[in-house]
């Protein structure tokens, strides 16, 4: 808010100082990927594309190609998004609008699970996946990630459906449409922005996920970018931060692109009651 009664520049100064460490890290994150710096100096002095060689060089023995890993990450994130959004859209509508027995119980359950810290379950999920043979598979991680994000998705979608005027549905029924047609043709178009926001949210969340793939699918063939990068960092005796950062920027690119495009929706969904 701009008000002529208060001066803005002291705040501006304060925020700038406070943001300096973060900005420094961001700037060096990008600059270091294409430059070299003489040891002991802070100012990069040579331009190079060496740090990006992981993109075109054959992987070291024992490592998987970055492209396989990227493909895995996309498959993981997109499948999670698709399954999660479809289940959230139907369940959110049911809880928002439809008559059913035990509705209170379901709603309370979803809300409890929404607040419930899912990561505590990782030990038993690890054992379950081992027992049913989905350990070390992408499918297993997708299912688990979908399930853990589902209460949030359902809750958010219920909120979006709650905001659709009842009269639209009533009018649809009067016009002779079945409850399903009303949902499909009249209600869903109204919550399209909500669906898009949820999809972006789930995609980003899956794209960034680290613990689940690390624990549930650690082997090379099911590796995703987060585990790939963290393995790179942990395995190295003499860390090559320029290379780590290049992989990191490569990994972060879709996130940044999505952030730039869906800025508004993201703010909305992160602000609309989410987990910390």
């Amino acid at each position: 808010m701009m008000s002529s009664n208060f001066r803005a520049w002291p705040l501006f100064l304060l925020l700038t100082v406070l943001s300096l460490p973060l900005v420094t890290m961001y700037v060096y994150l990008f600059v270091d990927t294409v430059t070299d710096t003489t040891a002991g100096s802070l100012i990069p002095d040579r331009f190079t594309l060496q740090h990006w060689r992981f993109l075109w060089e054959a992987p070291e023995t024992g490592r998987v190609s970055i492209w396989t890993v990227t493909l895995n990450t996309f498959v993981f994130a997109i499948c999670t998004t698709l399954v999660n959004v479809s289940a959230s859209v139907t369940a959110g509508y049911a809880l928002s609008r439809l008559n059913m027995p035990f509705k209170r119980f379901f709603l309370g359950g979803i809300l409890t699970l929404h607040a419930f810290p899912t990561i505590t379950l990782i030990i038993s999920i690890f054992l379950i996946l081992q027992m049913i043979g989905l350990y070390n598979t992408l499918i297993g991680v997708i299912l688990v990630k979908t399930a853990l994000e589902l209460p949030f998705g359902i809750w958010i979608m219920k909120g979006f459906f709650d905001n659709v005027p009842w009269e639209i549905e009533m009018a649809g029924l009067q016009d002779g449409a079945s409850r399903f047609t009303v949902w499909w043709k009249l209600v869903l178009p109204q919550v399209q922005p909500g669906i898009a926001a949820l999809a972006v949210f789930v995609f980003l969340s899956a794209w960034s996920e680290f613990i689940l793939p690390q624990v549930l699918a650690p082997s090379g063939s099911a590796q995703v970018l987060s585990t790939y990068l963290s393995n790179l960092i942990f395995d190295d005796v003499k860390p090559d931060f320029n290379m780590f950062k290049s992989v990191g920027v490569f990994y972060a690119l879709p996130v940044i692109v999505i952030y730039l495009i869906f800025n508004r929706q993201l703010m909305n969904i992160y602000g609309g009651g989410t987990k910390g």
């Binding site: 399954v83 479809s86 289940a87 959230s88 139907t90 369940a91 509508y93 049911a94 809880l95 439809l98 008559n99 059913m100 027995p101 509705k103 379901f106 979803i110 699970l113 899912t118 379950l121 999920i125 379950i128 299912l143 688990v144 979908t146 399930a147 853990l148 589902l150 209460p151 359902i154 409850r179 399903f180």
Partner: peptide, 19 residues
């Protein structure tokens, strides 16, 4: 009621199985 439960069931199955 059936419609409501039908709409809920995919989510319900996933949540029960993995949650």
């Amino acid at each position: 009621h059936l419609l409501g439960l039908g709409f809920l069931s995919p989510a319900l199955v996933i949540i029960v199985m993995l949650f």
